[in-house]
Nucleic acid binder design. Structure first.
Lengths: 142, 142
DNA sequence: ATAATAAAAGATATATTTGTCTTTTATTAT
DNA sequence: ATAATAAAAGACAAATATATCTTTTATTAT
């Protein structure tokens, strides 16, 4: 697995929330979980985390729900870092504590460019683009 | 994490076993765990699995231990598949069940070439090369 | 044959991730 | 003010991954 299940849910949930936000609608846990096919309460926890990490905004009470600031540029890398941290892009592929550029593990040189590319792809992918592609190509979220 | 901890141990353990095999020596659980800095009993389980999957050979009793057939060409991908399976290279990065070439998820096109490259690197890396590099460059296994 | 050795196997324990349920808090509309 | 709504928070449960310990089985050397 490249991303944790939590992180997969987080990305899909954020895209759905952004989707609704573009129509100036807030959306709730039940709706999000239904839309992306994830366990409801668990999704609630993840959304909560995303709010803490400033990826999403939320409002309590009637007319409340989750939403994104429509102007902000939000990239997939932000969500990945918020949920899984940065380890995917930095920690040694063979699990060696002291692996580094100066003291590389046997796979370091082979893997570094690949994970850099992965980071680049997540970094240059705005959530808005996923939203647009969702509409254009009938992408699905579950 | 790209690979599970078990898989990291498995690769490092296999390299160490191959290292000893080149000197026609068998090695035991305690020695392997010491050499790669892994929990002993857990390492035993992993070595056991590697034997089942024909990655390693083993012999019981005095003078016994783990070893590799010196002629066989064994690649890192074989170890990865034996322990973690093939999901790393195939399962959808956003966790969508039906994601495929014909019905791709929003990240499919971006991620596919990257994971193909990763698979290629593991596929073309023989364990013997890690052994040689270990000797040449003073690579470490823990 | 016997004792010693080392892997195999099985049972159990701990940690982490994933998932569920209940209670509390804040907000809105009436 | 009150009731309804929805997120926040906390406690709990299940599943999986990681780790440990004990017993069994096969092999070797004596």
């Amino acid at each position: 697995m490249i991303l944790s299940k939590s992180c997969e849910y987080a990305i899909r949930a954020t895209v759905y929330v952004a989707l609704k936000s573009r129509k100036n609608e807030k959306t709730g846990i039940i709706e999000v979980a239904g839309a992306i096919g994830s366990p409801m309460h668990f999704t609630g926890k993840i959304l909560q985390t995303l709010v803490h990490k400033k990826i999403l905004l939320s409002a309590k009470g009637p007319t409340g729900g989750f939403y994104v600031e429509n102007g902000q540029d939000l990239f997939l890398i932000d969500i990945v870092r918020a949920i899984d941290g940065n380890d995917l892009f930095t920690s040694c592929v063979l699990g060696l504590e002291k692996c580094s550029q100066t003291q590389p593990c046997p796979m370091h040189e082979q893997v570094k460019p690949i994970r850099d590319m992965l980071m680049a792809e997540f970094s240059k992918k705005p959530v808005t683009e996923l939203v647009e592609e969702f509409h254009k190509h009938k992408y699905f979220l579950k």
